[in-house]
């Protein structure tokens, strides 16, 4: 392979991973906007989605689409439970306490996953075929198209939800000003719960589509979650378009860096980008909210 087709290959795999980061970043953004909580258990939603679909698919003879929906539903319930039993009863709004609560939840979920499914990484059959598609000297596996397709559907659905449904509009109001939203009769608590449900659902969807490419184990949640979080900061914490942009950008940067510089430091690239953004432009690429700097 010559250099240009090699780069094309990196960009393709970067976009595939980036799509997942974008969805996870969106999950952070949804919850951050409604609660100002950074949910460190976000990556566990992705892991649970992957593990659940593997379990459902392996168990019986369910159609894959059905397993997909069932897995998303199950993880959504986990998201709702997380909000109901940890965030809502929390007495403190101190960021440190909230960070530790969500980290505790993430450890808890990871532990449960390990008990249920063991410590091995598991795989899943590709949604449709596995013979690679060739173009421009690079190859593309069909599952990548599924990843991109599902990502686009998730984004479109979210966009529709925010712009055209009452609940979505109410959530935007909450994000803009919680107190004012409460005063005009929006049930802020319910909106917070919806945000956790949504965030869990899209996280699970991301986890499901990526399994056939990357496998899934009980411990994949931390890194995925943290990278999605880097993507959210890169794009601008609290900005949905920013999360999407940040996700894809991070995926591509990471793939190029891993391919051209060093694969060992692949994971460091995301965090290096995170530091650069925070030090040079803490509001991110598209963030508008003023960042507290002295």
């Amino acid at each position: 392979m010559d250099l240009s087709s090699q780069i094309l290959q990196y960009v393709i795999s970067g976009i595939t991973n980036g799509a997942i980061y974008a969805v996870i970043a969106l999950g952070f953004t949804i919850i951050y906007n409604s609660t100002e909580v950074i949910n460190f258990a976000q990556g566990e939603f992705v892991m649970l989605g992957g593990m659940a679909v593997i379990a459902l698919d392996g168990n019986g003879h369910l159609p894959l689409g059905f397993s997909f929906l069932l897995a998303v539903l199950a993880v959504t319930l986990v998201g709702i439970a997380l909000e109901r039993f940890t965030i809502r009863p929390a007495k403190s709004s101190n960021p440190i306490a909230l960070i530790i609560i969500t980290v505790g939840a993430s450890i808890f979920l990871r532990g449960l996953a390990m008990m249920f499914w063991g410590k091995d990484s598991l795989g899943l059959r590709a949604f449709t075929g596995s013979s690679p598609i060739h173009f421009g000297g690079a190859t593309l596996i069909p599952q990548s198209l599924w990843v991109l397709g599902v990502t686009v559907v998730v984004m479109a659905a979210l966009q529709f939800f925010y712009k055209h449904t009452i609940t979505g509009k109410a959530m935007r109001a909450c994000a803009f000003n919680r107190r004012a939203a409460g005063l005009v009769g929006i049930g802020v608590n319910r909106m917070v719960m919806v945000s956790f449900a949504l965030s869990a659902a899209i996280g699970a969807a991301a986890g499901i589509v990526i399994v056939p490419i990357t496998l899934c184990g009980y411990d994949v949640g931390i890194m995925l979650g943290l990278k999605g979080f880097c993507a959210a900061v890169l794009g601008g914490l609290g900005s949905s378009p920013g999360s999407i942009l940040g996700g894809f950008l991070l995926g591509v940067l990471e793939a190029l860096g891993a391919g051209l510089i060093s694969s060992g430091f692949k994971d460091a690239i995301a965090f290096f980008v995170l530091l650069l953004v925070l030090f040079l432009r803490p509001s991110g690429l598209l963030g508008s909210k003023e960042v507290k700097r002295f």
Binding site: T86, P89, S92, I101, I107, F108, L112
Partner: peptide, 21 residues
């Protein structure tokens, strides 16, 4: 054994939820 991290996570959550100080 393998339950330890489940219990550890649970303790973290419970302490922080009910005794944030």
């Amino acid at each position: 054994h393998d339950f330890d991290i489940v219990i550890f996570g649970l303790i973290l959550m419970v302490v922080m939820i009910f005794m944030p100080q």
